[in-house]
Design a protein around this nucleic acid. Structure first.
Length: 743
DNA sequence: CCTCGGTGATTTTTT
DNA sequence: ATCACCGAGG
């Protein structure tokens, strides 16, 4: 390991730093992963720190895997003993050891978002609350928000609101249900680890001692709870090193708080700050354009990213009429790149803001036979058949997991339907036990009658057989095979729609289990199953993303974080799509959209394309679009305007629309481009401003008070979408509707 | 108990 | 456009 030759001075400094906290501000493509892995290697090889005294936190499991690999290569050994993982995985690992100290049983399961929603819905039902009155996702958001901040969800229940009491009850019931099921949601993993350290000083002390050296990647995307956790385990004598980039903070909606990064020195006094500003990834042109976009935001730490790379090509911006044409045009360009320039498909990334935008690309690419992979849609473990089987495993691991039990009770069908389930649930509630506890109790006491009793007994018998198999060899693979065989799951699938495909998924799942088995070193048993389930609960699809196949990668901007491609297509550069409609609710949300744009742009190494469709269907309704305001920030001399129609007239009286954070002299700095112009009649040259803004309150003669959700068009074509208090959503023509502004 | 069709609501990003 | 939920009929 030759530091001087392989690292720049700032990276070297980050690697060598000893003692107090270290904050590395690492711009896009500045080789931060390199610095991090070298730092780890240096700790072990030259400073005599034992690998098991090192904790490295990454943002995704994929990043963890990669770091593990790189560290292994540097250290030259297979088993390093270093803890590398996401916050969630790390906390799960800690809790697996000590959760009994918090009154939970050791065999806890992890509830994902869907499981969480099931619990909330059943709580609502139990409390006889109409799901329309209190939306389940609203509860879910509240729970999430609280746990991300490390506070009790009860504290976030709105006190004034008429539904406050109900929400309070649901939140309390949710908590009870999860405890009863011995289940933790994602937020709990962090919060409970935090509580473990707070309430058990001895445990905390042991981890403080263990983790002499802690490294955290993507620090800008940590939330409050994670920050607190770090404060708990980072010891005074130890070394804490965090790496991040405030310009790439894109998970605010998930509770991430850039202030963790911005105010790091305040929370950890004596911090040394190092900035990595040399970019090794992109051309000068791409960097210049991206930097200009980033500058549109206030409150940045600010940095000067530079590169020794070539100037490179200008960016290409293209407008088409529809998303289909956008996809067609990009598909053709990709073909051209592949044939004329010999660019392999795998070096091309196509990004979009929302998953829903991927469809036209998939269709076009399929048609033109462009090999492609959509990253991050319909995760494997979310497919019904996989979830079913997983539920069996989870239930066998933890019989109190009622969500899983409810899923498998009648799957495959065995005549234990909703009615029976409700009866059983009511009985279990009465007995203050989990659903399975209630069922066993009911069977024992002979409370149930006739048919359903027999069916339940048969189910109980099945579970007994499975449990026996589990005791004999707890290997997930064998257990899974037993489940499939004993339940007749394959037969169950055969008749169904898409049966073939689903059977394949079952096979694949079994295969995954066998791979997992092969990785484990200990003899299979309860622990193995627990570890297997935990892994499944915490991996996402980007983690599975393998770039060995020569495919064009289609993904959302969020998925693209941390990746790079020689050629990038940034699509849907439209106001309302790239700054997403919903981000107009707050300046912070809007700033995040700009960062998202920045992240997308900085993924590109050589070529960056941006595009927009002038019309897009939203809610299945065709709407005109405006160019993304972010385009206005890009200096005109680095961008080529390519027009599908190839007509290019000047507009003289156009008003810039939306927020204008640009320097005002961009080619793209007009509100509407040629293609927007309606054929007839021509727009009047005056009165083209929008008179309403999103979020404004309005009063309608018959519909009453409402809030503006969307504004489209200007002048006599101005239309607003209003959500009225009475619950209706209406789209109204401003000029003709009996409307007035209200306060 | 299942399937079908209508209804209404709902749209960001995911550990 | 798509999905979840509900009630009616098989």
């Amino acid at each position: 390991m030759d530091l001087d030759r392989e690292l720049n001075p700032q990276q070297t400094e980050a690697v060598l730093h000893e003692g107090g906290p270290l904050l590395v501000l690492a711009g896009a493509g500045s080789g931060k992963t390199r610095a991090l892995t070298y730092r780890i290697a240096h700790l072990v090889l030259h400073r005599g720190i034992a690998p098991w005294n090192i904790l490295a936190i990454t943002f995704t499991n994929k990043a963890a895997e990669e770091m593990r690999l790189r560290v292994r290569r540097l250290l030259g050994t297979e088993k390093t003993g270093i803890w590398v993982g996401t916050f969630h995985a790390t906390c799960a690992r800690i809790l697996r050891q000590h959760i009994e100290r918090l009154g939970y049983r050791k065999n806890f399961v992890i509830y994902d978002t869907a499981d969480q929603l099931r619990v909330i819905k059943s709580s609502l039902k139990r409390l006889r609350v109409d799901a329309k009155q209190v939306r389940p996702v609203a509860i879910q958001n509240l729970l999430d928000k609280a746990k991300n901040q490390g506070i009790d969800p009860a504290l976030l229940v709105p006190q004034q609101s008429p539904t406050g009491r109900i929400i309070e009850e649901v939140v309390a019931d949710y908590k009870r249900r999860l405890e009863e099921a011995n289940a933790l949601d994602f937020g709990d993993l962090i919060v409970l680890a935090l509580r473990l350290f707070e309430t058990c000083p001895d445990v905390r002390a042991s981890y403080r001692e263990k983790f002499h050296s802690i490294l955290v990647d993507e620090y800008q995307d940590t939330n409050r709870a994670q920050h607190l956790l770090l404060q708990q385990i980072a010891s005074e004598g130890g070394e804490l090193c965090v790496v991040g980039d405030d310009d790439q903070s894109i998970y605010r909606w998930r509770g991430a708080d850039v202030n963790n990064l911005l105010a790091f020195e305040k929370d950890f006094p004596g911090t040394r700050v190092i900035a990595l500003e040399e970019n090794y990834r992109s051309t000068q042109t791409i960097l210049r354009a991206a930097d200009a976009v980033a500058r549109g935001n206030p409150n940045r730490r600010g940095k000067r990213l530079w590169t020794r790379n070539e100037v490179g090509d200008r960016l290409v911006y293209e407008e088409t009429m529809t998303p289909d044409e956008e996809a067609t045009s990009i598909a053709r360009e990709i073909q051209r790149l592949a044939t004329e320039l010999d660019i392999p498909y795998r070096s091309i990334g196509v990004f979009f803001r929302t998953n829903a935008q991927s469809r036209p690309f998939e269709e076009r690419f399929l048609l033109l036979r462009i090999p492609h992979a959509v990253i991050g849609t319909m995760r494997f473990y979310e497919r019904a058949e996989v979830k079913d089987l997983l539920a069996y495993l989870r239930f066998l691991y933890n019989p109190d997991d009622s969500v899983s039990l409810l899923r498998i009770l009648n799957q495959p069908l065995r005549g234990i339907g909703p009615t029976t389930q409700a009866t059983l649930q009511a009985y279990a509630d009465e007995q203050a036990t989990s659903l399975w506890g209630g069922i066993e109790h009911a069977l024992e006491k002979g409370i149930l009658s006739g048919a359903s009793r027999g069916r339940l007994e048969r189910f109980q018998g099945l579970i007994r057989i499975l449990n026996q198999g589990f005791e004999n060899h707890g290997s997930p693979e064998i257990l899974l095979k037993t489940v499939v065989a004993q339940t007749g799951y394959k037969t169950f699938l055969e008749g169904k729609e898409d049966g073939e495909r689903r059977l394949e998924n079952v096979e694949e799942f079994v295969h995954t289990a066998s791979l997992f088995q092969a990785m484990e070193e200990e003899a299979p048993g309860r622990e193995t199953l627990g570890a297997f389930l935990q892994r499944i609960a915490l991996v996402s699809d980007i983690d599975q993303y393998e770039d060995r196949a020569n495919c064009v990668s289609l993904m959302t901007l969020h998925c693209a974080k941390g990746l790079e491609f020689p050629v990038v297509f940034l699509t849907g550069m439209e106001d309302g799509i790239l700054p997403h409609q919903r981000s107009y609710t707050s300046p912070e949300a809007l700033a995040e959209e700009r960062r998202l744009c920045y992240v997308g742009m900085t993924r590109a190494k050589k070529k960056l394309y941006m595009s927009r469709a002038c019309y897009r269907s939203i809610y299945g309704e065709r709407q005109q679009t405006d160019p993304s305001p972010f385009l206005a920030s890009i200096p005109p001399d680095v961008i080529d305007f390519r027009d599908a129609e190839d007509e290019f007239d000047e507009i003289d009286d156009a008003d810039p629309i939306g927020i204008d954070a640009g320097n005002g002299d961009s080619v793209l700095d007009y509100g509407e481009s040629q293609l927007d112009r309606p054929p007839l009649p021509p727009m009047p040259s005056s009165g083209r401003k929008q008179t309403y803004r999103i979020g404004e309150r309005v009063e309608h003669e018959t519909l009453g008070i409402g809030t503006v959700r969307n504004v489209e068009g200007t002048g006599y074509k101005e239309k607003i979408t209003v959500q009225f208090k009475v619950g209706k959503i209406r789209k109204l023509m401003v000029q003709v509707s009996p409307l007035k502004k209200s306060s």
